[in-house]
């Protein structure tokens, strides 16, 4: 079980959190202007890197705040440039 540092509450067990997937996925500014393929990529396609990955978590059983961290998907190290 990962030990995740909530920016507000400090280090807590993974079971207190819910995962929010890749961070920084922005919705096309004008959804009506993009074609189905691009909209589909926004909806369904996410990176799956081996290594650093910016991802979202919410401290759902704690302060309920969303935050972004960078986690190494191989080592589970949380890298410092998060937030």
């Amino acid at each position: 079980m990962l030990l995740i540092t909530c920016p507000w509450c400090g280090p807590r067990d993974e079971t207190e959190f819910k995962y929010g997937g890749q961070a920084g996925v922005s919705c096309p500014a004008e959804p009506e202007a993009v074609d189905d393929a691009e909209w589909g990529r926004f909806l369904f396609v996410r990176d799956n890197p081996r290594g650093p990955f910016a991802e979202r978590w919410v401290h759902s059983a704690g302060c309920r705040r969303w935050f972004t961290v960078v986690r190494d998907t191989v080592t589970h190290d949380f890298l410092p440039e998060a937030r």
Binding site: G20, R56, S60, R64, R65, W66
Partner: peptide
Amino acid sequence: DWLDEWLQTE
């Protein structure tokens, strides 16, 4: 949770 997520993040 859904409302909270949109209000906080987007």
